[in-house]
């Protein structure tokens, strides 16, 4: 039973290594048109030097809203689970 587990793990890790080794080369990403648009227009449209911040809070702000919701839910969940100290 243990050897089956180790074999399955080795198989999965081997597949991961193969996929990583035969992927497209490092440093040459495909489909970069959207990011080129962000890099060119972020200073004029969002008015920020930091392009990552303008993507997080402006172009993909809805994503960040969901992220903040997840964080809020996690804090509420921890407070509920540990509610003995809250009393």
């Amino acid at each position: 039973m243990k050897w089956v587990r180790v074999g399955a793990l080795l198989l999965v890790v081997g597949l991961l290594f193969g996929a990583a080794a035969w992927m497209r080369p490092f440093g040459r990403p495909s489909l970069a048109e959207m990011d080129a648009y962000f890099i060119q227009k972020a200073q004029a449209e969002a008015g920020a030097n930091n392009v990552v911040t303008s993507v997080v809070f402006d172009y993909r702000g809805f994503d960040t809203l969901g992220e903040a919701t997840v964080l809020f839910c996690a804090v509420v969940g921890v407070a509920l689970v540990l509610r003995r100290v809250l009393r």
Partner: peptide, 14 residues
């Protein structure tokens, strides 16, 4: 590319 970095930020917080 800025978009993978932004999505990684989301992933780190989650």
């Amino acid at each position: 590319l800025p978009t993978p970095q932004a999505l990684t930020l989301t992933s780190i917080v989650i």
